[in-house]
């Protein structure tokens, strides 16, 4: 008896118990580290922002957009949170979303929580941040540069996060398809989803940057050279 429900994340039983356990342990350790490191990025101003960014990701993940006839995609959110609140806080944001979805909405298996966190909250955020960080010069130069950075970081985070599943399936996947097939399909679908992820991420980062550039982590952590931007923003009201 097999039933599937419309869900967005990995179900239980897709990879075997030892694999789930390994990725569960890795995820617990990394999220623990993130919780320690996140403290430095959280203050009275950024903590409420982090809470709302988390809530926003939860909401937008509900919106599946069509990518092919019969197939859809949804935001993963790695680059989005990394750019807005930084990689450590961002890892916690996505982890909270995944926990709420698994516990409350039966979306994403409980034993698969470790693998889902590994793919989306760790790989997605770390890769999204790495790309955004590498492009930070461009992001700070102009609004177009910021949007391009957000798009590219989001596209890459989506495709690389999908490789996380391929890795887990290769290590301890249940039967049903060869790893090669899984690899080709995952990357193919997620290259398309990555375009949607890029558009949503660029639009969101662009909107936040337009009203509160001081709340965009990627712009804020820059060495303080472009003072006029920060100043000008602070005096208007």
């Amino acid at each position: 008896m097999t039933t599937t429900d419309v869900a967005m994340h990995m179900s239980d039983g897709i990879v075997n118990a030892p694999t789930s356990l390994i990725f569960g342990v890795i995820s617990v350790l990394f999220v623990g580290l993130a919780a320690v490191r996140a403290r430095a990025d959280l203050d009275d101003r950024t903590a409420p922002m982090a809470g709302l960014v988390t809530t926003f990701v939860f909401a937008v993940q509900m919106i599946n957009f069509p990518i092919l006839p019969g197939a859809s995609g949804h935001l993963l959110g790695g680059a989005l949170v990394a750019i807005l609140v930084g990689p450590w806080v961002g890892t916690l944001c996505i982890t909270i979303v995944l926990v709420v979805q698994a516990l409350l909405f039966a979306d994403g298996g409980l034993t698969a929580l470790g693998t889902n966190v590994f793919n989306m909250a760790i790989i997605g955020v770390v890769v999204g941040w790495a790309v955004a960080r590498a492009m930070r010069g461009l992001a700070r130069r102009s609004r177009g540069g910021l949007l391009a950075t957000a798009f590219v970081a989001a596209f890459v985070n989506t495709v690389v996060a999908s490789l996380g599943f391929v890795l887990e399936y290769a290590i301890g996947g249940a039967a049903g398809a060869t790893t090669g097939t899984v690899f080709v399909l995952m990357v193919g679908f997620h290259a398309l989803i990555g375009i949607g992820e890029g558009v949503i991420t660029a639009a969101t980062v662009g909107a936040v940057a337009a009203v509160r550039p001081d709340l965009v982590h990627l712009l804020r952590t820059a060495p303080r050279v472009e003072q006029p931007v920060a100043r000008g923003e602070g005096t208007q009201a």
Partner: peptide
């Protein structure tokens, strides 16, 4: 959310392949 596609997402499309 009422406008969201009800088609399987990327991961589900892969696990349902075949």
């Amino acid at each position: 959310s009422y406008l969201a596609s009800s088609s399987p997402d990327g991961l589900d499309s892969v696990t349902l392949h075949g």
